[in-house]
Simulated assay, not measured.
Amino acid sequence: MLSGLAGALFNPAVRTYLAQEAGDRKAEAFALFQVFATTGALLGPLLGGLLLLGGFRATALTAAALFALLTVAQAAVLPARPVPPPAGTVLGDWREAAADRRFAAFALATAGLYGLESQLYLLLPHAVREATGRPGAVGLLFVVGTLAGLLGQLRLTRRLTARGGGRGRWIAAGLALAGIGFLPPLLTAGAGEPHPARLVPVLAGVLLLYAGLMTAQPFVMELVPAFGRPDLTGTRYGLFHAVTGVAAAGIGVGVGAAMDAAARGGPAWLPYASCAALGLVSAAAVALLHRRRALPEPPVPAPAPEGPRPRSEAR
C-alpha cells in the first residue's frame, strides 16, 4: 500500500516535471526517461537477487537507503520552479479533466498498451518457462528489452518525430506492433516438452513488443498534457494513470483467466491470441481518433543542438 501511494505521488509529478522542463522536445525527453526505466527494470531484479543472498532484511534496508539517497539528491540537484497558486479546487480540476471526452477516449484507447506491457510479468514469463523448463531464463526478457531500449529508443523517437505525420499515427503503429509481438509465441504454445529452440519465437515476440512500446510510449506521454491548459498537466497525468492502471489490471485478470482455461485443456494459443487482438483493436481505436482529428498536435520541436564541428570542417 505504501509503494502504491508512493507511485501515485511520484508518477504524475515526475512526468509533469519532464513535460514542463522539456518544452517542445517532450517526446525526446520521455524517450530518454524510458531508457532509464527499462535499464532499471533489468538492474533492479539482478541486484535484488544478489542482495537476497544476504537475507530479506538486508535487501529491504538497502532499497530503503537508496530511495532516501535519491530523495536527498533530487531535492538538492533539481532546479526549483515557482508554482502558481491553483485557480480552482482539486475536485474541480478532476471534474474538468474527466469531462474532456477526447482525453477520456484517448486514455481508454491507449490502455491496451499498458495491459500488453504488464504481460512482461505474467504471460511472457510463463511462455519462457514453458519453452525452456528453466525459471531462471525469464531474465532474458528484460535483457532483450534493456538492450533494445539502450540501442534504439532515442534514435527511433527522433526519427519518427522528424518524419512527422501526426502523433496518433505512430501511437497506433506502436500498439499494432505490440499486439503482433504475441503471435510468434502463439506458434509454439503447448508444443510439448521444453526445448531451447522454442525460446526463439518467444524472444522474437518480446523484441516486437518492446519495439511497439518504444514507438508509442514517448508520444503517448507527450500528448497527455496537450489536451488542455498547462496548469492541469499533473491532474491529467494522474487521471491518465488511474484509467490505464485500472484497465491494465482488468486486462491482466482476463489474460490470467485465458491462461487458466488453457491449463484446463483449452486451446494453448488463447491468451496470446487475446493479447494480439487487444493490441490491434487499441491500434484501430487510436487510428480512428487520429483520423477524426480528435488528438491534439504538439508544436514541432526545435532541432537538437549540434556538437562542435570537426577541426578539418572548422578550418
Score class of each variant (00 low, 15 high):
G44T: 07
P85V: 00
A111M: 12
A27I: 06
R81I: 03
L18W: 05
V83I: 08
S3G: 13
E117V: 06
L9I: 11
A75M: 10
A27G: 01
L124H: 11
V90W: 15
L69K: 09
Q20H: 15
A64I: 06
Q74F: 11
R129S: 09
A64T: 11
A99T: 10
A105V: 10
G112D: 08
A13I: 06
G115N: 09
A6N: 15
R81K: 14
A68C: 07
A97E: 12
A60E: 09
R57H: 10
A68I: 03
A8S: 13
Q119N: 12
A13F: 12
L66P: 14
L123F: 13
A109C: 12
G49F: 07
A31P: 02
A6H: 11
L18T: 15
S118G: 09
R129Q: 13
F56C: 00
L91K: 07
L46Y: 11
R95E: 06
F33R: 00
A8W: 10
P82W: 08
G4Q: 12
G23C: 02
T59A: 03
P125A: 07
Q74D: 08
K26Y: 01
Q20A: 01
V128T: 09
L50R: 15
G88V: 04
G44P: 05
Q34W: 02
Y121V: 01
T62N: 02
G55P: 06
G88D: 15
A105W: 12
T59G: 00
E28C: 00
E21V: 06
G40Q: 09
G115K: 07
D100K: 08
A31D: 06
G4N: 12
A97R: 08
A111C: 13
L113Y: 13
S3R: 13
Y114V: 00
G48V: 03
L51S: 02
G48M: 06
G115I: 03
P12E: 03
L123E: 06
A73M: 05
Y17K: 01
Q34I: 01
D100A: 03
A68K: 05
G4D: 08
L123H: 11
L52W: 10
G55W: 13
L52K: 03
Q20F: 05
